[in-house]
């Protein structure tokens, strides 16, 4: 009996003094870091919405781009909206199928072989290649021979999107359980058929959501378009030939204009671009929530 009472008292309360202070300080610092991030983000979004909302309207989104000296009420960004949609859609049509196919190679065919692992590694590295390099690259191999066009811009954006789509699709294909593949093989299906009719549908939610995020990233990019579409002010519905324009490059051109009208149109274009990126991001989240069968 005496042995029980002799046991030392274990103090389970939070430690006092310097140790507690330091722990509290560290926790406060972590929350502060989050605040440090929210402030500029809020500042940017507030400015873009406040300055953009005053000019944006249906006619702003459809009217032709006026001369820079035109006052804020005149004209709009119609050609740039058209250009951004055309070029991004074309880039998506080029990069997403190739990216998904590449991911299929990495996960279904290459497996853990050296080539597949090397390609996966280089795809990771390629996501870090600056987007302006993609612009210079397409300028060199395409624009110098065939001239400026929306197609050249789409190639540059496609180069940017390709590794992102490969990366995200690869992650999603990894999550598909092997039992699905094995069951299909047991039914006598070929590998291509298993991949297209069983594995892809099982991962489609994640693949679509990853691709939407890649599109959101590409739609806002400026640097790859600078040297590939030339950024004219007239609308060019033909995406395959002739100089084109886009919201991002118009913002870049308007940002260092001294004219208030040009700046206002820049803010309107910025709000449009941010809205496009946000819509794509929210769509990606919705697709993930609704269709993703296997998640991390």
């Amino acid at each position: 009996m005496a042995a029980v009472t002799a046991q030392p008292q274990v103090d389970l309360r939070e430690p006092k003094g310097w140790r507690r202070t330091r722990n509290r300080a560290a926790t406060v610092a972590m929350y502060l870091a989050f605040v440090v991030v929210i402030v500029p983000l809020g500042f940017v979004l507030y400015t873009v919405i406040a300055k953009g909302a005053s000019i944006i309207s249906w006619s702003f989104l459809t009217s032709p781009i006026p001369v820079n000296v035109a006052p804020p009420g005149v004209g709009g960004m119609g050609p740039a909206v058209l250009g951004t949609i055309e070029i991004t859609a074309l880039a998506t049509a080029i990069a997403v199928p190739l990216g998904v196919l590449g991911a299929i190679y990495l996960n279904e065919y290459g497996g853990r072989g050296p080539l597949a692992r090397f390609i996966a590694f280089m795809a990771d590295v390629m996501t870090g290649v600056p987007s302006i390099i993609m612009g210079l690259f397409i300028f060199t191999i395409w624009v110098l021979h065939f001239g400026y066009s929306g197609l050249a811009g789409a190639f540059a954006l496609g180069c940017l999107m390709l590794p992102i789509v490969i990366q995200s699709s690869h992650e999603m294909l990894k999550l598909v359980p092997n039992s699905l593949r094995e069951a299909s093989y047991a039914l006598g299906a070929t590998k291509a058929r298993v991949t297209v009719t069983v594995v892809l549908p099982a991962a489609i939610g994640g693949i679509v959501s990853g691709s939407l995020l890649a599109v959101a990233r590409a739609a806002g990019e400026t640097a790859p378009l600078l040297f590939t579409i030339l950024t004219v002010t007239t609308a060019n519905p033909n995406v395959f030939s002739g100089a084109n324009t886009a919201l991002s490059t118009e913002i870049f051109a308007n940002a260092d204009q001294p004219f208030l009208g040009a700046q206002a149109r820049g803010w309107g274009a910025a709000l449009t671009l941010v809205a496009i990126a946000f819509i794509l991001m929210i769509a990606a989240r919705l697709v993930t929530a609704r269709f993703a069968r296997y998640q991390h």
């Binding site: 940017v44 959101a216 806002g220 913002i251 870049f252 820049g266 910025a270």
Partner: peptide, 13 residues
């Protein structure tokens, strides 16, 4: 969201 805001919008701001 910081990454969703396009580079050119950061620049304009």
């Amino acid at each position: 969201l910081l990454a969703v805001v396009p580079s050119v919008v950061w620049g304009l701001w």
